[in-house]
C-alpha cells in the first residue's frame, strides 16, 4: 500500500482515480487545485509516495509547480503527470525535471485507468525499495 496524492480540478476525475487506486489497496488523498496540493505536500506527516497530477489546471504548467514542490519535499517521491493529448512537449519537460512518468489521458483504444494503476503500482514499489535502501538510490525518469 502506498500513500497517493491525486491532483485534478475535475471532481469526477478525482473520484474515478481515487476509486480505482483504492481498489489497488492504496491510501488515496485528493486535491482540487495547485494551491490545495502545495498545502498538502508541505503538511506534517509522512511524505506521499506517489503523486498523480494533471498537467494543466489553473495554468498550462500547474503540473510543473506540483512536481517541483513534491520533489522538494521528498526527492524519493514518484510523480506521474497526466497530460491532454498532444501536450507531450510539456510532459517531456517534466521528465527532464525528474517526473517518474507521464500518461496521456485520451488515448483511443486504451483503458488509461488500468495503465495509470499499473504505473502507480510500479512507482510505489520503487519508492518503497529506495526508501528501504534496497532499490536504486537515485532515479530520474522512466520510459515504462
Amino acid at each position: 500500500m502506498a500513500r497517493v496524492l491525486v491532483v485534478d480540478d475535475e471532481p469526477d476525475v478525482q473520484d474515478a482515480l481515487k476509486r480505482r487506486l483504492e481498489r489497488a489497496d492504496h491510501s488515496v488523498h485528493c486535491a482540487s487545485s495547485t494551491e490545495d496540493a502545495l498545502t498538502m505536500l508541505v503538511a506534517g506527516g509522512p511524505a506521499f509516495d506517489v503523486i498523480i497530477t494533471d498537467m494543466s489546471m489553473e495554468s498550462e504548467n500547474s503540473g510543473v509547480e506540483i512536481l517541483q514542490a513534491a520533489l522538494h519535499r521528498d526527492s524519493l517521491s514518484a510523480v506521474i503527470i497526466l497530460t491532454a493529448y498532444g501536450n507531450v512537449r510539456n510532459a517531456v519537460t517534466c521528465m527532464q525535471m525528474g517526473a517518474y512518468d507521464y500518461v496521456e489521458k485520451n488515448i483511443p483504444d486504451v483503458d488509461v485507468f488500468e495503465l495509470i494503476t499499473l504505473k502507480a503500482n510500479r512507482a510505489a514499489q520503487q519508492v518503497r525499495e529506495r526508501r528501504s535502501g534496497s532499490g536504486p538510490t537515485f532515479r530520474l525518469g522512466s520510459a515504462a
Binding site: 475535475e10 469526477d12 476525475v13 473520484d15 474515478a16 494543466s56 485520451n106 485507468f113
Partner: peptide, 16 residues
C-alpha cells in the same frame, strides 16, 4: 481540453 477531461472521467466510471 474540457471534453477530453470529461471523457477521461467517464472512462474512469466505466472502468469502475
Amino acid at each position: 481540453h474540457m471534453v477530453g477531461n470529461k471523457t477521461f472521467a467517464i472512462k474512469g466510471h466505466v472502468n469502475e
